[in-house]
């Protein structure tokens, strides 16, 4: 089975009990999806909450670092240590870091939890829909008010993401040219050296994304693709702004399927992209979002529920996540783990 990705190594190490917690980075779901696949907790904070200094840049308008742990409380402790201003990341926000642990009061009485109708997407497995409904029940039982909401531009989030992210990646990864650092393959001339180095050093999916990025940014296509995607991003962010007039947080599944075999579906890039359908919209809007382990699939694989919060309301999100964790009482452990 795959642990999910891209922070799948972090997720697997935490799940296997070989570390207490691990850092991850999340551009479109890379903390939350592996957290769900591995049965752990992971939070992608608000864009700008944690410094990305030292992280290999992928899509700079989306990249954010965050903690991955075995409990929501550990996540709160680790996030408190990670969050804050860093002059070495000019996108990091200079505002006080609250005590996230103190915000975990265990009470969500009167909180309004939104359930977006557009997240009932085709291809989501029945067991995940069932778990989502269970999560809604848990929230209601804890005294929260469930509110049906609409995020009308949801279906355009993935297409917008697969323009914005490759465009930024193609620009960020231009630095891997074999001159200043990293892998180099000699060529007949400088241009040949660049091309051979990059073809040899980047994997298939990375090369595909660089090509897509170069294409959508190229002369004549920039407006039709890149600017269009940025406009759609505004619409998606506005959907969330409107929803947060009515609710305090939003509950969705984390991924449309449990973990899959390492020989399954990876041949089809689009099918792989659809795995991020629930996590990408919050990324495009820069919102904090977390995955909490909530149950097992019929095959015994971990499933996560996903909470999306308002900007810089990580404390609220962790509090709701903590209530969810308690209700779910997820106790499954992987067979392969440290000390077992």
């Amino acid at each position: 089975m795959v642990p999910g990705g891209s922070s799948g190594g972090s997720a697997a190490s935490v799940a296997a009990n070989s570390v207490l917690g691990a850092t991850g980075t999340d551009t479109g779901g890379s903390i939350r999806q592996p957290a769900a696949f591995c049965g752990i907790t992971g939070i992608k904070p608000t864009y700008g909450r944690c410094s990305r200094w030292g992280v290999v840049a992928f899509a700079s308008s989306l990249d954010q670092a965050g903690p991955m742990t075995r409990s929501v409380r550990d996540c709160a402790i680790m996030l408190e240590a990670m969050a804050g201003y860093d002059k070495k990341d000019s996108t990091s926000i200079n505002r006080p870091v609250p005590s996230y642990q103190n915000e975990m009061t265990g009470s969500i009485k009167g909180k309004r939890i939104g359930v977006p109708k557009e997240y009932r997407v085709d291809g989501t497995s029945d067991e995940i829909i069932k778990l989502w409904e269970q999560g809604i029940e848990w929230m209601r039982d804890a005294g929260a008010e469930i509110v049906d909401i609409s995020l009308p531009h949801t279906k355009y989030a993935l297409p917008a993401y697969y323009i914005v992210a490759p465009a930024e990646a193609s620009s960020n990864l231009a630095r891997y040219d074999g001159i200043r650092y990293g892998h180099r393959v000699e060529g007949e001339d400088l241009n040949d050296l660049y091309c051979k180095t990059r073809a040899d050093g980047f994997g298939d999916e990375v090369q595909r994304r660089i090509m897509i990025g170069a294409y959508v940014l190229s002369a004549g296509f920039y407006d039709a693709y890149y600017n269009k995607a940025r406009q759609v991003r505004t619409l998606i962010a506005n959907d969330f702004k409107a929803a947060f007039g009515q609710v305090d947080a939003i509950l969705t599944p984390t991924a449309p399927t449990p973990a899959f075999g390492d020989n399954e579906i990876q041949d089809d890039p689009i099918a792989m992209y659809l795995n991020d359908v629930f996590t990408v919209p919050a990324s495009l809007a820069g919102l904090p979002a977390m995955s909490v382990p909530a149950g097992l699939s019929n095959d015994g694989l971990p499933l996560g529920l996903h909470l999306i919060g308002q900007p810089f309301e990580e404390g609220e999100l962790l509090n709701i996540g903590g209530v969810m964790e308690k209700a779910a009482a997820f106790s499954a452990k992987p067979q392969l783990r440290a000390g077992a």
Partner: peptide, 20 residues
Amino acid sequence: FVEQLSELDTTGVQPMTSVV
């Protein structure tokens, strides 16, 4: 896949430059 975006009328919508 990404060309689905052309269905949307985005006339007058400001392109996002920063989420925060």
